[in-house]
């Protein structure tokens, strides 16, 4: 069933992304791509940009599907975003987390809202600033409970600052982002929320990228993570390549270094993500 849903999302995405009306008021590549929790961002980190090509006078809807496959786990995530007048972003994501050792799958649903507080990624003097929220609801709670997580749902709050500097590094455009997140989620919430170690805490996330052309960017991300379950949960990092051939579709590939997840160490692997913009 989940595979069907996943394939269905990808099929719809590919079909529609080349067609139809599309908001196109931003410069190409500037909306960023979609992170695993459904917000506009990189792969792991939500950025200040709001999803899609909507400018202040437009709205935009996008759909995305992503897969990260590391040694002992696989995370699939599909969803949609709505950008209203480049002021507010709403997002919905469905995650399927496959745990090989337990031969089980954990599903989680995430509803996100992000509001642009200040600025523009390219034009404003100071970095663009956005405030976001991700409400996460675990649909399969057995694993979280067995690990002594406090809750099976939780809310992350984050403040993100981003800027694209035109021609900043040897004439190439340079992007950076810093996100501060207040969260009690264990491994994105897939292993529940809070635990014996700690409850909510402040975590830092950062990304940077260089655009080698209008369409191609190469970057890195870092995401600090809490360790509420006393399982030595590690920080996450990735190196990514993003391709925005036009204002209708983006493709991102990344190498993930996720460290230890639920006691399984050295979890590395590939990530692939598509977003279609309308």
């Amino acid at each position: 069933m989940k595979r069907k849903v996943h394939n269905f999302c990808i099929a719809i995405l590919i079909f529609f992304s080349s067609q139809l009306f599309a908001a196109d008021g931003k410069l190409i590549s500037t909306p960023g791509v979609t992170q695993v929790e459904g917000s506009a961002g990189g792969g792991l980190v939500p950025w200040a940009q709001l999803a899609g090509y909507a400018s202040r006078d437009e709205y935009a809807a996008n759909i995305f599907c992503s897969q990260g496959k590391v040694d002992d786990f696989r995370l699939r995530s599909c969803g949609a975003q709505l950008n209203l007048f480049d002021r507010v972003e709403f997002s919905l994501a469905q995650q399927w987390f496959q745990v090989d050792v337990l031969d089980t799958e954990i599903k989680q649903r995430i509803f996100g809202v992000k509001a642009r507080l200040y600025g523009d990624l390219v034009y404003s003097q100071w970095p663009m600033l956005s405030l976001g929220m991700q409400y996460k609801h675990l649909q399969d709670t057995a694993v979280a409970k067995s690990l002594n997580a406090d809750d099976t749902s939780g809310t992350d709050w984050y403040l993100a600052a981003s800027k694209l500097h035109l021609g900043a590094i040897a004439g190439y455009n340079w992007f950076w982002n810093i996100t501060a997140r207040y969260t009690d989620a264990n491994e994105l919430g897939l292993l529940g929320f809070g635990g014996p170690g700690e409850n909510a805490s402040l975590q830092w996330e950062a990304s940077t990228a260089i655009f080698f052309s209008r369409e191609w960017a190469v970057g890195v991300e870092y995401r600090q993570k809490p360790d509420n379950l006393d399982l030595n949960e590690d920080d996450w990092a990735d190196v990514f390549v993003a391709w925005n051939p036009n204002k209708s579709v983006s493709v991102t590939a990344a190498w993930l270094e996720l460290g230890s997840i639920a006691g399984s160490s050295d979890q590395n692997g590939l990530y692939l993500s598509f977003t279609g913009y309308f």
Partner: peptide
Amino acid sequence: PHPVQNKLLARLAP
């Protein structure tokens, strides 16, 4: 060249 384009855009953006 792409970097030269960016330099001009950077001066126009403000």
